[in-house]
Amino acid sequence: MEAGYRRGLGSRIARGPAIMVPVLVTLLCVVATVMPYGSLQGIPLAPMFPLAAIYFFVLTRPTLMTPLGIFAIGLTQDLITGGPIGLWILVYEAAFVVTSMQRVFFVGRPAGEAWLGFIFVVSLSAAIIWSLASMFYQTAIPLVPIIGQMMVTALVYPLLAWVFTFVLPEREGGA
């Protein structure tokens, strides 16, 4: 067991930057999210790129998207968006837990089913965002912008997933 662990650690170090790809790509998604796309009737037009990336990489490369990596992603988003620190960490960690639990159902299944799973994760994330932000600001924040942004995110997920496949690192021990 110990030898196996050592082999695993050695191979991870040898793979170097490849194991960082999911977290780095998701961090780029955080930057992409805060670009000034504007809004439509108060609904932000920017999809939640990081949520889509986390879902995709947890499904496809679960060993490379860890809770600590997600912590770094959430903290980065909290800092650069100027919002309550900790909110996006909690949202993304919850998405990680739910996606990890769903993973067994979606491995080897058609992409359309993974999309349905993502819609579930997005809905849950919307509920968490609304609850935490309302508690933080001690008022019921408007639901429409949250639902609107989550719908945009769910709609563009297939396109984003297709883009993410181009940066998907090989599995440990070969493709």
Partner: peptide, 15 residues
């Protein structure tokens, strides 16, 4: 020039 916004649904800020 506005170079970023909060990108989220519960804040209205710009950078």
């Amino acid at each position: 020039r506005v170079v970023a916004d909060d990108g989220g649904p519960f804040r209205r800020t710009l950078v």
